[in-house]
Design a binder for these strands. Sequence first.
DNA 1: TACATAGTGTTATATTATAACAATTTTGCA
DNA 2: TGCAAAATTGTTATAATATAACACTATGTA
Lengths: 130, 130
Amino acid sequence: MYKENNLSKNQQIIFDLIDKSSEPLKAYTILFSVQKKGIKAPPQVYRALDKLVETGKIHKIESKNAFVACRNSNCEISKATAFSICESCEMVDEINDAKLTKYLTNFSDKKGTKYKRFNLEFFGLCKKCK
Amino acid sequence: MYKENNLSKNQQIIFDLIDKSSEPLKAYTILFSVQKKGIKAPPQVYRALDKLVETGKIHKIESKNAFVACRNSNCEISKATAFSICESCEMVDEINDAKLTKYLTNFSDKKGTKYKRFNLEFFGLCKKCK
DNA sequence: TACATAGTGTTATATTATAACAATTTTGCA
DNA sequence: TGCAAAATTGTTATAATATAACACTATGTA
Ligand SMILES: [Zn+2]
Ligand SMILES: [Zn+2]
Ligand SMILES: [Zn+2]
Ligand SMILES: [Zn+2]
């Protein structure tokens, strides 16, 4: 079963839920939603989330402790993530901007250090809320 | 007492602790450290932290749930923050790069939306750990 | 003084996340 | 095919992070 799509049963259930959601989902919201499917305890949810984040299927919105499905081509396996977050309605959109990604991926600080990963969160008002 | 430096007693105690620290501090680490000074309960710590974040004296490192003192000129009151985070030793440095700030402050997405605030976290290895 | 705003102290509780252990399923490969 | 390693699952308990609610005190300004 695992081979077919490389997601395990719990991972698939939880990914489907996140993928269908129009807003970021929190771990315990997910837990309550999937209890009817037999996922009953927090570790089951967190383990699936960890794996999905690791493989770039989902991203964690750090400022919200919530998870969204990746809408890009897996963000070079999550080395370069950027989001816009509405401060009014909580909406989150993944930003897919090649120039921005390039700029930040190539960024080096004053000591000349380059970084191998970044996460960027923009805050403001979405179109609806403006 | 408040007027002298615009920080209240608890705010000053907690700011001093964070400011002197060479690494990000977590709320409960702070709580344990200041109990001898009479700050005994989580809400006292979180309220001070909230105010210090709000006024730009400290920043929250979202990926670590920890707090650092601002090392810039208060980051235009925390509208534009960027950090480098070592994945090995946990060290965090605030990035102060005018070009980067300008680039991101002026960034507008494909729909032309501009954002009023951002937080950027870079991950990699610091000089020591490389 | 008197009022509004900000800060404090306290108890309890909500929310987010992991440790630890036993069992089963899947996978890669001899 | 058959076996061991790796991944996944299930479960209980607990750790770590954060807020609600309420009573009270200090401060700034009119
Ligand atoms: Zn993505
Ligand atoms: Zn909105
Ligand atoms: Zn700063
Ligand atoms: Zn380091």
